[in-house]
Design a protein around this nucleic acid. Structure first.
Lengths: 335, 335
DNA sequence: ATTTAGCACTCTCAGACTTAAAGTGCTAAA
DNA sequence: TTTAGCACTTTAAGTCTGAGAGTGCTAAAT
């Protein structure tokens, strides 16, 4: 790859990213003045095609970048983009962080708006959670709040409705008993026997204890299930190359399938925060996303929660802009 | 409208609902044996067309129901459908109702699956909420939970992180002060002066008081904003008549726009629970949904929360099935 | 007064053909 | 090594054609 070939490859890619149409030798001469004729460009293009960096949709058309062309571009040719360094993405509504999911959703919506692509965010679940401690807080005559503090420092809570009257004293007593027996217990160690043991000590409200056990199991189980926030899917309608019902259906269905979507983050599993991963076309490993590129990174959110963010767009993505977007997000988090 | 015309209209509609293709006079003779020839059907069809109940996509094609044809069908011709009376829709995960939104989302997903159309659910916000009372519950050294019980009996809570150390005694003291001043206050009456008053009595943690005020304002404000849960949009890909990118884009964009979507429920505002409202085509009042039908009803969920559910599908909807679906949902709620 | 057989008419859909435009590859000369 | 020139290929859009589906109308039958 001599420098002129690189210049031409870069020109083809920039042109194609912008216009989504095959790029002709003449266009390159006109817009990227290399002081050679279109014939020269043509022979260079033939060489680039042999190298696998570009291809022709049909024999007499202009050239389109191949996946390996984008890869070469990303690895060696890309300019960095300084325009976007002043994001303040994480000022989003930082007051109301009780529900991490709402927060992540807002981040996703904003990122999708800025990128004009689709954004996927997922919270990283770390191993098994235990009960750090719990509290029962009386609210109204017939309601109390069960607050669970988990070993991951996450707080979860649930409203309980009583059939039977329960006094504040009883609530305190029950809280003590539950804490005594449940602290440091994980999903597996919350057994029927344990429940029986507690029922023996506190036989007053068997239904309530039952309910509490159910909720705890659900809460701990929830912590094992990763879920994905996907925003900006409708941005696909802005891309002329996906102007077919089949393609849109396949895209929407694929991003609705958590199992497939999780593959998007395979490369950054266990990587350090801030490292930007770029997967182009089949590098993603999802057949239906062969015409897409994913830019992803690990990220930490408020309260030390770990997560992953991915931007998914066409292979002819505005790489610089979106890489900078994720980088700036990361920087903000660190300061 | 004599009985034979009604039979023919019904046949055309049933046939079109099933096949999404113009219905010919011959098809009716073959499948709905009315003991007349196709020529007779044709002259009846011409009459039905004059009445506005059916129309022809082009001059020499079969007939397609017009909006008023569906309306006539729904009002006078429809069979009721008893097949679906054993739904147990509301057994969904009823243990984990802390977050009403998650619950509604699950209901929407299940209904979308059963109907094969798109389901919209919204929680009804009733007027202005006040603070019934609040509690501060210590969790970890540097964290507490602010629990707000609203006059609507809704419980909302938020994790607070302290900069400064706060003792349990201080939390109790602050709780008392806040309750004394904030009980029965609504969004408008939580003023700067009020905050100042509290700061005068409890000057120890100005930042914390600040934070709590912010959160309360957000919480009360949230109660004013209705939001919509939309599930099953991708079912549109199963409908051959929407097999065009433009149509799908318009549908998805329209359902993403809360202002327009809220119109779907206009007819059932203030109606009694369980009343099923059917809006066909332009009756919906949303230009982009001219080819859709909405079936909607008021509904009450767990803990007495009021909501609205709508099923949105093509005008050639399986009316009986989806009406029964919503009705059975309502019945289950009541028992 | 209705119903129906028969036929002319209309429209769609798919395939074949045509032409203009865009772009390439190759060759021979610079 | 570069380039001008030209033959060649392909697409995209337009036109034509014939088959098929379905109607509306008319005149005869019930």
């Amino acid at each position: 790859m001599d420098s002129r070939k690189e210049q031409i490859l870069k020109a083809i890619i920039k042109e194609y990213i912008f216009g989504a149409e095959p790029v002709s030798s003449k266009t390159i001469v006109n817009r990227y003045g290399l002081n050679v004729s279109s014939a020269t460009i043509r022979s260079e293009m033939a060489a680039l095609e042999t190298l696998g960096y570009i291809k022709q949709p049909h024999i007499s058309s202009g050239r389109v970048p191949a996946a390996s062309g984008y890869r070469y571009y990303v690895d060696y040719l890309m300019d960095s983009d300084n325009i976007l360094n002043e994001f303040n993405l994480l000022d989003v509504n930082t007051n109301n962080l009780k529900d991490i999911n709402n927060y992540l959703k807002e981040v996703a919506i904003i990122l999708a708006g800025l990128s004009n692509y689709t954004v996927i965010i997922t919270e990283e679940k770390q191993g098994e959670d235990k009960i750090h401690h719990l509290k029962l807080v009386g609210l109204l005559e017939d309601k109390a709040l069960l607050v669970l503090v988990l070993s991951s420092k996450k707080v979860k809570d649930y409203v309980l409705s009583f059939m039977e009257k329960i006094s504040d004293d009883d609530l305190i007593k029950l809280t003590d008993i539950l804490n005594y027996h449940l602290i440091d217990k994980n999903l597996d160690s919350i057994t029927l026997e344990l429940k029986q043991e507690i029922l023996n000590i506190f036989p007053d409200s068997p239904l309530l204890v039952d309910e509490i056990f159910k909720i705890i199991l659900i809460a701990l189980n929830e912590e094992k299930n990763v879920d994905f926030i996907v925003e900006g899917m409708k941005n696909i309608f802005k891309l002329p190359e996906f102007n077919e019902v089949k393609k849109i259906e396949s895209f929407i269905n694929t991003l609705g399938d958590q199992e497939r979507v999780s593959k998007i983050f395979d490369n950054i599993l266990g990587q350090e925060k801030g490292k930007i991963d770029i997967k182009i076309g089949d590098e993603i490993g999802i057949e239906e996303l062969i015409d897409f590129t994913v830019i992803a990174t690990n990220c930490s959110f408020c309260d030390g929660i770990q997560g992953k963010i991915g931007i998914i767009g066409p292979t002819r993505m505005f790489y610089e802009k979106n890489i900078t977007l994720l980088e700036s997000l990361f920087k903000k988090k660190e300061e």
